[in-house]
Design a protein around this nucleic acid. Structure first.
Lengths: 339, 339
DNA sequence: CTGAAAGCGCTTACAG
DNA sequence: CTGAAAGCGCTTACAG
């Protein structure tokens, strides 16, 4: 390993001070009125010796790490890993790197992880909020480091966030089922106070009411897949009149599909299906499953553009940016009109 | 934001030197023969003021960042995001964090990313090697920072790595099909020099030879999904005698299944299927698809234990650790014996 | 137009 | 048993 060249080496070889080198390297030559002549000489030597300012020293000195903390429930979930990929792309373009961690929806773990991010002086946070972390996140936002929430948010908390129009999405999905002739549409969600889940429920309820239909809702106390399958199966058996169902999230849909398999129901003849969150599996199951797709790249793009603008100039706009993105309903065979 | 307390604050309040505080905080009180009395006082005040050594200063001083660089083709692929989740878990337990990036199988991008990791002084590397990066990775291993490869490796390169027994896995999968009565087994792979893919092919060839059957192999020049589907479909149409097929990787299997859908072949009646790499989708397609499953957590566990041992004591064993893990064949309906 | 110097918060050889 | 001091590689106010 060849010795790294430092700012001192440059200065010494040119017989000038390190201040001058520092100014030139940081593009402040003009501002500091370094002569063009000297500037050129410095730049040349920098090039020649392949000098790069030591990132650690710089971070230490400036307090800026160029690292962003990314906190989600589980990085291995397709939704989150998809976001992870895109934010890394955008961040890398601007010289930032991402460190991540999974909270597993464990509040204490989340608090701990937030603390670790802070101890490591991340420049900003991207968080899919775990339940019960209101206070910590509020404290964080007061900490002058930018925080962007996504997926989930608190209505009472005035933060930057990027979400989707949950309510409209389920409203449209319900409407789609109605248009295709379904009259007894169920809604499977979890027992939670997570805002995005409540909004999804609201959209369904509104559509049902508008259409003058009867609502049928089950809120599963989510603990694990097995118990959830049991709950959903029982629900289907009890509500024999159902001819269609909407699953309010990815993992609920998985358990729902398993329940349908077990009860040996035919999709869509016995039961039409729409899932919230689209993923590859739904294109491959047979029949293919209609799903509400979140625009991953768009979400990531918005998160990063908010974060980067906050990072660039602290004097950026005071108000909070709250972006609500539209989803797309990918219509497939599971919600076909019955002839 | 309350002012952070520094080592100086502790020293001043106790009227002692910062050296002493540093020694105590770093658990070197005994070694440096600080009196129990003073040690206790320091620890007490540290507790009271909630003093934590500044991570940035420490990193700068010691050159150790407690960050590990994780480089893969695409963090959003289930295999990689699964690994990402587990290595973060293990790393976090030991005070390390992970920064990641996706190479998209682009060599120049990979080189650039490796450079970025280096510039940021990561303490170690976990890499799923892109093709053509032999020299760079070799240079990296000479750099005294630990490097652990996984998924892919170079036989000629003497590195730490964690892989699976690719050859045996496809051998067993082929054998499984033969045992279930299939006689014309095809193998769909990509045109590559990636070692793990070659090993998978080798296992298939060996089994076919051992069983005295006829081999039928297609190596797709992989560029994108659409062209790959075309290639595979053409292959199936040409090789009418096939009664079973093995797809050599996740993404190949996806394209393969689409091809089968298009040609309207019935699984397993027209064509039995086995996939390399198991993922949720395969349990949900109908029929369910038999797959060779990689032990994600086990792989991550091994990666981290090698890396951490290298990180702990530089004097650790000189030889390279090369772990080869077994896979599991998850037998499902797609490879059922035909009655 | 350029330089000398302080200082960010630590660790660690050295001295006593 | 403990302290004074150098130094890691930068940035930046200050001086001239």
């Amino acid at each position: 390993m060849k010795k790294k060249v430092s700012i001192k080496d440059i200065a010494r070889q040119l017989g000038i001070s390190i201040s001058t080198v520092s100014f030139v390297v940081n593009g402040k030559a003009k501002e500091k009125r370094i002569s063009d002549d000297l500037t050129k000489k410095v730049l040349q030597l920098v090039e020649e010796l392949d000098y790069k300012p030591d990132a650690l020293a710089k971070s230490f000195r400036t307090g800026k790490t160029n690292i962003i903390g990314f906190l989600v429930a589980d990085i291995s979930e397709p939704f989150f890993s998809g976001i992870a990929r895109f934010i890394d792309e955008k961040a890398s373009q601007k010289g930032y790197k991402i460190i991540y961690s999974s909270t597993k929806n464990n509040k204490n773990k989340a608090i701990e992880l937030l603390q670790i991010f802070q101890d490591r002086h991340v420049d900003g946070y991207i968080i899919a909020l775990p339940e019960g972390l209101e206070d910590e996140v509020k404290a964080l936002t007061l900490n002058q480091k930018p925080v962007v929430l996504f997926d989930r948010y608190f209505p009472e908390l005035n933060t930057d966030h990027v979400i989707i129009n949950n309510e409209e999405s389920t409203y449209n999905a319900t409407k789609h089922l109605v248009d295709n002739g379904y009259k007894h549409i169920g809604f499977v969600t979890i027992d939670t106070i997570e805002q995005q889940m409540l909004d999804r429920l609201k959209g369904y309820e509104l559509a049902i009411k508008t259409e003058g239909l009867q609502e049928s809702i089950i809120k599963i106390p989510y603990s694990n897949s097995a118990s959830s399958i049991k709950e959903i199966s029982a629900y289907f058996q009890k509500e024999q009149q159902l001819d269609a169902v909407i699953f309010a999230a990815n993992y609920i849909c998985m358990d729902g599909l398993r329940s349908i398999q077990r009860l040996d129901l035919k999709i869509p003849e016995d039961l039409a299906v729409v899932s919230f969150d689209d993923f590859e599996l739904l294109e491959f199951s047979s029949p293919t499953i209609t799903a509400i797709a979140q625009p991953l790249e768009d979400i990531a793009e918005n998160i990063m553009s908010i974060l980067l603008s906050r990072l660039d100039d602290q004097k950026s706009e005071k108000g909070h940016k709250q972006v609500v993105l539209p989803t797309v309903l990918n219509v497939r065979k599971s919600s076909l009109a019955q002839s």
